[in-house]
Simulated assay, not measured.
Amino acid sequence: MRAAVVTSFTEPLQLQDRPVPTPGPGQVLVRIETSGLCHTDIHAAHGDWPVKPSPPFVPGHEGVGIVEATGPGVTAHEVGDRVALPWLGHACGHCDHCVSGWETLCVRQQNTGYSIDGSFADYAVADANYAVRVPDGVDPLDAAPLTCAGVTTYKAVKVAHIRPAEKVAIFGIGGLGHLALQYAHLVGGEVIAVDVSDEKLGLARDLGADHTVNAATEDPVSAIEALGGADVAIVLAVIPSVFEQAFASLRRGGRLVCVGLPPEQDGPMKLPLFPTVLKGISVIGSIVGTRQDLAEVFDLHALGRTRVIAETRSLEDVNSAIDEVLEGRAPARLVFEM
């Protein structure tokens, strides 16, 4: 089978011919149909974060495909099922986080395309209990971005506890942001889309954004203050200064939801303590959603409540696709179609 492999943090991915893996106990073998390219895959390939994966490995955690074989003891899926392989590839299932509905905080978790081989390949094996069924009617091309970009931003909107008519600023309109603004709109938020690209801001308006701010041509803090300030700011960018702008745009009692993860070398975000305390600001870290969150994301899409903006690429073009994302040329999500 073909697989795009990280052999070094300083070298492009290599397209290799590997044996088709065999599912072990509790695992399924999935023939990959589509796999989205997430910025996290790029961070993984470059070793950007403090806890680094170990080359060689196969990235990809937005994989969607068909179960071709099951290992011993599998009851969650059958051959022929279409499933998604999300970031949370495995958790212990027994700790207080797992049993309380916060499996994404499990300290024993394994992550698809990071600590275990992912979906930038023709086939992948996965823990059957953490492969999420894709409902009939959800196209694999749409399901791939929903598997991470969708569930991550859906969870961010959930933990923000947005009330109808609150102003919600989305910083970064791309693979994640174009979905975040739709979820914020669904729960009744007045959505402010912030980006440096007129093209992406045009997309935001098409998807229902109430206001747009081009941070390349105007100060986003002043622009959002002129609208009354944001009740919630969800940051999907990976630049520390953007987090600081989002914080400054909040009105009293506002909530800053941190989603994007800048490379380690870019330094920390500066958090001013006096405004945080005196204005009653909440700073919330939001990690990816659970299996239940992803099931809800798929159900919403099947109901026609969300649109996925994506373009397909070939796995052979994995390195040029990474360049597109890093240079901001990707319209929203890029998806490898096997």
Rank of each mutant, 00 (worst) to 15 (best):
Y130F: 15
G177K: 05
A149V: 10
D122P: 01
L176W: 02
V134C: 11
V151Y: 05
D127E: 15
P164C: 03
V138P: 06
R163P: 00
I173D: 08
Q182M: 05
K155V: 07
S119W: 04
H185R: 12
A149S: 15
D142A: 15
S115G: 13
Y154D: 11
V132Q: 06
V151R: 11
D136L: 13
A124N: 00
I170S: 04
A160N: 07
H161F: 06
P140Q: 14
V125R: 01
L181H: 02
L181E: 02
A184D: 00
D136P: 06
P135K: 10
V159R: 05
E166P: 01
G175M: 01
T153K: 11
I173Y: 07
D122G: 11
V157H: 03
D136H: 10
I116K: 05
D139I: 13
V132M: 07
G172C: 12
V159A: 11
A184Y: 05
I162K: 09
L146E: 06
A156Y: 09
R133I: 10
G118N: 09
D117H: 11
G172W: 06
H161W: 03
Y123F: 10
A144P: 12
L146S: 06
D117N: 15
D136G: 15
I162N: 10
A143V: 13
N129E: 13
A121F: 05
V134L: 12
G150F: 11
F120T: 03
A160V: 06
Y130G: 03
A156G: 11
V138Q: 03
A156I: 13
G174E: 08
